[in-house]
Write a protein that binds this DNA or RNA. Sequence first.
DNA 1: AGAGATACCTGGGAGC
DNA 2: TGCTCCCAGGTATCTC
Length: 274
Amino acid sequence: MPELPEAENIRMALERALTGRRIVGVQVFSPAMRTSLLPLKTAALEGRIVTSVRRRGRYVVADLDDGRGLVMHFGMSGVVRVESLSIPRRKHEHVFLELDDGRAFRFECTRRFSLLEVFTPETPGGWPSRLADLGPEPLSGEFSGAALKAAAKGRNCPVKAFVMDNAVVTGIGNIYATESLFAAGIDPRKPAHRMTRLQCDRFCEEAKAILRRAIAAGGSSISDFRNVDGSEGRFARELLIYGRAGEACPKCGAPLKCVQIGGRSSCFCPQCQK
DNA sequence: AGAGATACCTGGGAGC
DNA sequence: TGCTCCCAGGTATCTC
């Protein structure tokens, strides 16, 4: 399921595949994912050239030469490919954007939690402002132990729900929150405001290191995730505790526990995480 | 304002 | 075998 490292890998691949390419056709096969896909058909995308590909949190934006942009989010099963139109459409491929090199940007999403929309910068409350409202990028200098400690003031929710809040830090989902809290030795159930400054520092350091390693490894392929070239991410094998409830803790050997936090299963070591 | 619950959706696995 | 049920996940939206 795409989190930040997966989105960044998609961004890098789309930057190579789409920059400078002209959109020559639009095909929409299914009316809706998270939002309706029908506006793509009447958005006059034909003739537009992709000028750059950006990322904000888990969102990837392909900027067009007329100032608009294509914003995409991959939910938990979104996959994009840039490949020949002649390859038969897969069951859950919902959109093809035909390119001037004979290939197509093809958007697949099994569980329809993804999003693909055109935005105009002028739209009040449109995508640029919504992206700007997201919390700091975890790999930026803006995300620090001091900032995390300040944001946690007065917040009584469990640490895990807190760090998965996109307004606190963006792009960290269940996998990387689980792994980062384990690496930092923090109990995911602990009320956010009770994290010490040292723990906030540790969390930031570990989260940044894990995210950087995951990006370098091409992301984590859990269930449906594939990179733009169809390859699987190699980081899944480096996950230490995600999805390993009942197994021995890789640090101390105690059995890993699993609890529900914010409606999401959360694996942790009751010995190592305080 | 914060926090919890719920809906959205599909495929895969467990259990009968 | 075939059926039902539950679970996974991010985000929006609702209620308390």
